[in-house]
Amino acid sequence: MTPTSARPLEHPRLEEIRLEAVLHALSDPMRLQVVRHLATLGDACETPCSAIDLAVTKSTSTHHFRVLRESGVICQIYRGTAKMNRLRRDDLDQLFPRLLDTILAADAAQLRRLGPGH
């Protein structure tokens, strides 16, 4: 008998995702860093929380991932003991065409303008 997985994490259904929640989630530099990392992996790729190095405490990191999940920006699923993360790009593109690409392009431009460490 296989041990049961941890409880499933709640995610908003497509029709429940709200623009203001997505914009709020993407307004924080740490959360934007998570999205930037996930965007580089491709749409179907998953990565564990621990693979994304955030300069914050574990509890603060957990909070940022929860905000991203509850806003509909990412999908999280347990694989064993690891919580895997995937960007909900298809859902976001369907609801808000080009929003994610525009935000990521603006973020990249700002990083170039401000330089490393900002």
Rank of each mutant, 00 (worst) to 15 (best):
L111R: 15
E70W: 03
L14D: 06
A44K: 07
L41T: 01
V73N: 07
Y78H: 15
R13Y: 07
S59M: 11
D93P: 07
A51N: 10
D107Y: 10
L95V: 08
P48F: 06
A82Q: 15
E10K: 13
G117A: 07
T81Q: 15
T47E: 06
F96Q: 10
T62E: 13
H64R: 14
T62D: 13
A105L: 13
G42Y: 03
D107E: 13
M1D: 03
C45A: 12
H118V: 04
L32C: 05
K58M: 05
P8C: 01
V56W: 03
P3K: 12
Q76V: 12
V22Q: 03
M30G: 00
T57F: 00
R89P: 02
L100P: 03
Q33I: 00
L114E: 13
Q76C: 13
A106H: 09
A25R: 03
T4M: 08
R69Y: 05
C45L: 04
H11P: 03
P48D: 11
A44G: 04
T62A: 15
L32H: 01
P48L: 07
S50C: 06
F96C: 10
A51C: 05
Y78I: 03
A51D: 14
Q94P: 00
Q94K: 11
I77L: 12
L99E: 10
R113N: 08
L38D: 01
L9R: 08
D53C: 06
F96N: 09
L54W: 02
Q110T: 11
H63K: 11
L19F: 11
D107N: 14
Q33P: 00
I74Y: 02
